[in-house]
Amino acid sequence: MSLVDLTRDLVSIPSHEDEAAAGDFLEAWLRRETDADVTRDSVGNVIARKGTGEETLAFVGHHDVVEPAASQVADGSGDDATEYAVEERDGRLYGRGTADMKGAVAAALLAFRDADPAGELVVASFVGEEIGGVGAQYAIDGGFSPDYAVVGEGSTNYSGQDVTDVAVAHKGRRGSTITAHGTAAHASEANAGENAIYRATAAVDRVRDLERPSVDAAGERLEGRLTVTEIEGGTAMNVVPARCTFTVDERTVPGERAALERVAALDGIEWTVDQDLPAMRCTDEAFAEAVLEAADGVQDGDPELVTKPHATDAGWLSAAGTECVIYGPSEPGEAHTDDESVSIGVLERCRETYRRVAQRWPTAG
Rank of each mutant, 00 (worst) to 15 (best):
L347A: 07
G175D: 08
V168N: 04
R225F: 08
E331P: 02
G365S: 11
A265S: 08
W316I: 10
R49Q: 12
I140D: 00
A124K: 06
D116V: 02
A108G: 14
D300F: 14
D64G: 11
A192W: 03
D24H: 11
V151R: 04
E33V: 11
V123R: 07
S2H: 05
G91K: 07
E304T: 11
A28N: 11
G91P: 09
T34F: 12
V263A: 01
R96L: 06
D249P: 06
P146R: 05
E19N: 10
R262P: 09
L109F: 15
A104R: 09
G175K: 03
G61V: 13
A106D: 12
A58I: 06
C244K: 00
S42V: 11
A74V: 02
G193M: 04
E348C: 15
A149Q: 02
I231Q: 03
G133C: 09
T252K: 09
E256V: 11
V123P: 03
E120F: 14
S214V: 14
A258P: 01
V122H: 07
D37I: 14
R212I: 12
V204H: 03
M1Q: 08
E19V: 13
C282Q: 03
Y354P: 03
G219D: 05
H16N: 09
G321V: 01
A320I: 02
Q359M: 10
R96A: 06
E27G: 05
R49P: 05
L260P: 00
G95C: 04
R225C: 08
A118G: 03
A294Y: 00
V273H: 04
R356C: 09
H63W: 05
Q137L: 08
T353A: 15
D313Y: 01
D284T: 09
R356Y: 05
V168A: 04
Q275T: 12
F287P: 04
A139C: 10
R349P: 04
L10E: 02
A218V: 10
D9C: 05
V150P: 03
L10H: 12
T235E: 14
F126G: 00
R225T: 13
A69S: 12
P254Y: 00
Y198S: 14
L266H: 04
D302A: 15
R251M: 10
V248A: 02
D162I: 10
V4D: 09
P146M: 08
R243H: 13
L6V: 12
K102T: 00
D296Y: 13
R89L: 03
T52G: 14
D114R: 15
N238A: 13
E19K: 01
D300R: 15
G345E: 15
F287R: 03
